[in-house]
């Protein structure tokens, strides 16, 4: 690769800018829940919250701030990260649970990210607030092993019920079998 790195500077990407109350919703969350950190990620409003208050924050956003729909609940495993963005005020753990919310009246989105440690992968469930989060939380449990407290029916959803392991974890192997093509000297 030549010396110029791809679009944007690698250094600037390492620290994400904090918006000073540019997004009033994010500001309200930070004010109401001390310890939360609001950032702007590529034009999107993200708030890093403590996992203990995830359900309360979601409830506040749903009721007071009119976030009508939970569009996505997912998880991320950062165990194999080469480089991770530093957010001042956020203690990084292995897993993250990400909740994307959409407000139709405001026509705005917000993302809540909470850090989930490896030794205690539990997070309060947002299913009681948004019944549509039922399936995605089951998927996060199935794929990552993160349990959601308060979920009505936390069971595997994509893998067979008796499957061993959590496939999207970085230490769970992809289980690729060696393949031989015609004319290959050995399996790849």
């Amino acid at each position: 690769m030549s010396d110029e790195s791809p679009q944007g500077d690698a250094d600037a990407a390492e620290t994400v800018e904090e918006i000073a109350i540019a997004d009033p919703v994010a500001a309200a969350v930070v004010e109401g829940f001390p310890g939360s950190v609001a950032v702007e990620s590529h034009g999107q409003s993200v708030v890093y919250v403590d996992r203990g208050v995830l359900a309360e924050v979601t409830k506040r956003l749903r009721d007071a701030e009119r976030f009508t729909q939970c569009t996505d609940v997912t998880a991320v495993d950062h165990a194999a990260d080469v480089e991770r963005v530093e957010i001042p005020g956020v203690v990084r753990e292995r897993f993250e649970v990400v909740v994307n919310l959409l407000s139709h009246p405001r026509n705005a989105r917000i993302r809540l990210i909470c850090q989930v440690p490896e030794d205690d992968p539990t997070v309060p469930s947002v299913t009681p607030l948004f019944p549509g989060a039922n399936f995605p939380e089951r998927e996060a449990y199935d794929m990552f092993g993160i349990t959601f407290d308060g979920h009505p029916d936390l069971a595997r959803i994509l893998m067979p019920d008796d499957w061993d392991g959590h496939p999207l974890r970085k230490d769970d192997p992809i289980a690729r079998i060696p393949v031989t093509f015609k004319g290959d000297p050995a399996p790849r």
């Binding site: 893998m159 992809i174 289980a175 690729r176 393949v179």
Partner: peptide, 9 residues
């Protein structure tokens, strides 16, 4: 043959 999805699933 499993196609492009040579994995656990």
């Amino acid at each position: 043959s499993g196609g492009m999805f040579n994995n656990y699933a």
